[in-house]
Amino acid sequence: MNSVIFIVLALFAINILAAPLDDSKIAQIISYENENLGIDGYKFSFETSDGTKRSEEATLKNIGKDNEAISVRGTISWLGADGITYTINFLADENGYQPEGDHIPKA
Rank of each mutant, 00 (worst) to 15 (best):
L11H: 08
T87W: 08
I63A: 12
A69H: 06
E94C: 02
N89A: 15
E35A: 15
G74A: 13
L17N: 11
G51W: 08
N67F: 03
N34P: 00
A10H: 07
S31H: 12
N62K: 11
S49E: 05
Q98H: 07
I63H: 07
S55C: 06
A18H: 08
S24K: 07
A27G: 03
R54H: 11
K43M: 14
D93K: 00
Y97S: 12
S45W: 04
T52F: 10
S45Y: 05
T87H: 04
D93T: 02
I26H: 14
K106P: 05
I84Y: 10
S31Q: 13
P20M: 12
D93I: 05
K43L: 15
D50E: 08
P20N: 14
L37H: 00
N36V: 01
Q98Y: 09
D50N: 14
G41I: 07
L17M: 09
S55V: 06
G96P: 03
I30P: 07
T48P: 01
E94V: 01
E94G: 03
D23K: 15
G80R: 04
G74M: 06
G80I: 02
L21S: 13
D22K: 00
D66K: 15
E94I: 01
I16L: 11
K61R: 10
G96F: 13
N34T: 01
K61Q: 15
I76P: 01
E47I: 00
I16H: 15
L79G: 02
F12W: 13
E100D: 11
A10I: 02
L21E: 15
I26P: 01
S55E: 15
G41T: 04
P105T: 07
E57Q: 09
A19C: 06
A107T: 06
L60W: 04
S45C: 04
L21G: 05
A19K: 14
L60S: 06
F44C: 09
T87R: 06
K65G: 02
I70P: 04
A107N: 08
G96A: 10
I39K: 08
A107Y: 10
N62F: 06
I29L: 12
I29D: 15
N15W: 12
A69N: 08
G101R: 03
F12D: 11
F90Q: 01
S49K: 00
K43N: 14
N95Y: 13
G41R: 07
T87E: 10
T52N: 05
K25W: 00
T85L: 04
D66F: 00
P20Q: 14
G83T: 05
T85C: 04
A92D: 05
L37K: 06
K25D: 02
A13H: 07
A10F: 10
V72G: 05
G38Y: 03
A69D: 14
Y42C: 11
E56G: 02
I14G: 13
G51L: 11
N36E: 00
L11V: 12
S49N: 04
K53E: 13
D23E: 09
Y32N: 10
D23P: 00
F90S: 02
V72Y: 01
G64C: 10
S24D: 09
A58E: 09
I70D: 04
P99F: 13
A107F: 14
F90C: 01
Q28D: 11
S49D: 05
Y32G: 03
D82W: 10
